[in-house]
Nucleic acid binder design. Structure first.
Lengths: 224, 224
DNA sequence: AAGTGTTATTGTCAAAATGACTATAAGCTT
DNA sequence: AAGCTTATAGTCATTTTGACAATAACACTT
C-alpha cells in the first residue's frame, strides 16, 4: 500500500531554548493556509509509523534532523480542519534554538523561531496544540531531568537554572537551586572554569550520563 | 460525510478498583479476532470527535456509561493491525469495578474484569497499550488527587490508602499516609463512623470538592 | 593599584516534612 | 473478660525547604 492516509496528520511543537523559550513555526507555501504561520506538520504515509512520519515531516519542512520527538496528544474534534476530517497526532520536543540551521522546504516557504510570549494566530487549532504542549513540557521537566541536549557538554549551574526558569516561567533562588541539583548526583563537577567573563568564573559541570539515564526511568521529582 | 474512518480506531484501557486493580476486557464476537480477548475498542465515525467516539464505543461494547476518559496515546506502528493500516487512539480511566453492571454488546460476546496481575495475551498490541496505561496511571495519581469516583461519598482513610496501594502496587505506612493526606486539606472529617466492623470503627471522611477541583489544576504532589 | 559591578559559592537558621515507630483506643468475637 | 483487629495520636531523629547573609573571584574602570 502506498500514498498518504487521508485522515491522519502530524504536527510538531518544537520548543527552542537559547535564553528564552521559543517555538518553531513555518509559513505555508501553498494550499489552504498559504502565507499563514503554523506548526510544522504533514501527512502520514501508509507504510510509515507515526513516530517516523513525525521525524521526516519535521526534517522536510525545517531541515531539523535527528530530533528526539515525544508524542503529545491526538487532536480530533470534527471541525478542527476545514473541508476534510483530519485527526492530527501532535509531537513535541525541546532543543537548543541557537546554532541550528533552519532550511524551509517542501510546503514551507519560511521557518522561524518565535518567542513563546509572542505567538500570534496560527492555522487551524495550532494555538491550542501549542498551549497543551507548553503545559505538558512544564509538567515533564519536573519529572525527568532535562538539559542533556540543551547545553554544551560542559556548562555552568546558572545555565541549567536558566533553562528551568525559561520553561517554567518562574524565578529560582540560586543557592537553593544549586543545592537541590547537586544533591541529585546528576552533575559532575569538572576541573575547569569559565574564562573571560566579567565576574567570578563559574565552575563547569557535566551530566553524569548513567545517573541521567537512570532518572529517565525511575523516580525523579523536582518540586519548585 | 458519513460512515467510519477506515484507518483510525479507539481502544479503552479501563482500570477498575475494588480492593485490587483490574482492567476491563472484552471477548470479540466476530471478525479477525473472534473469540479472543482485547481492550474494548472500535472505529471512529467521520462526524464524531475522538473523545465522543471513545465514550460511545465503550458504552456499546460494555454498557459502561458516563465514564470520564482521558486520552492515553496514539499507537501507530505500521504492523500493529493485520491487513490494514490502523492507528489507534487509546483512552484510559480508573473507576470502581464493583456495583457496576457490565453488558456485552455490539461486537463483544463477553465482558469481564481481569486482575492486572493476571492478564494473558491480548489481541494486536493491546498488552503494550495496557502496560503504557498502567505506567501513565501510576504517574498520574502522584500528580492529581484521585478517589472522587472510586469511593462512596463517605469513606475511611484506609479505603483511600488502599486505592493508592493497589494502583502503585506498594505498601504505605498508615499513620504517615493519614498525616500526609489530611495536610492537603482535601478531606473533610464528618461526624460519623463505621459500624458493625469487627474492630475499632474508623471515622468517615468526605472529599472537599472545591479543594479537589483546585488540585486538579494546580500543583499537587504526593511523593510516595 | 584600587575600586566597582557582577556573578559564584559557601554557609546559616528556623521551619516544615519525612520515615520509622510506639502506644493507646475502641470496635466485634469468643 | 480476653483477644483480635484496625484506628488514631503522638514521638523523634533526620532530611528538606526557603529565605537570606557573607565572602570570593573575575574583568573593567579610573
Amino acid at each position: 500500500m502506498d500514498g498518504i492516509i487521508p485522515n491522519i496528520s502530524i504536527d510538531c511543537v518544537i520548543f527552542g531554548f537559547d535564553s528564552e523559550l521559543k517555538v518553531l513555526l513555518v509559513k505555508h507555501a501553498d494550499g489552504i493556509g498559504k502565507g499563514e504561520w503554523a506548526l510544522p506538520g504533514g501527512w502520514v504515509n501508509f507504510d510509515e509509523s507515526l513516530d517516523s512520519s513525525a521525524s521526516n515531516i519535521l526534517f522536510l519542512l525545517t531541515g531539523l534532523n535527528n530530533i528526539y520527538l515525544e508524542q503529545l496528544k491526538a487532536f480530533g474534534t470534527v471541525e478542527r480542519y476545514p473541508d476534510q476530517r483530519v485527526v492530527t497526532i501532535a509531537y513535541y520536543s525541546l532543543i537548543r534554538s541557537d546554532k541550528i540551521a533552519l532550511i524551509p522546504g517542501f510546503t514551507a516557504s519560511d521557518v522561524s523561531w518565535v518567542s513563546i510570549t509572542n505567538v500570534d494566530q496560527l492555522l487551524y487549532d495550532h494555538n491550542e496544540i501549542l498551549q497543551f504542549g507548553l503545559k505538558t513540557l512544564q509538567k515533564k521537566v519536573k519529572q525527568e531531568p532535562i538539559g542533556f541536549n540543551l547545553l554544551p557538554p560542559q556548562f555552568t549551574l546558572l545555565q541549567l537554572q536558566q533553562i528551568y526558569e525559561a520553561v517554567l516561567q518562574i524565578e529560582l533562588d540560586k543557592p537553593n537551586f544549586r543545592r537541590k541539583l547537586l544533591k541529585t548526583g546528576l552533575l559532575k563537577k569538572i576541573d575547569s572554569k569559565q574564562y573571560n567573563v566579567p565576574h567570578r568564573a563559574a565552575n563547569l559541570y557535566e551530566f553524569n550520563r548513567s545517573v541521567y539515564l537512570k532518572y529517565k526511568e525511575q523516580k525523579f521529582v523536582l518540586d519548585f
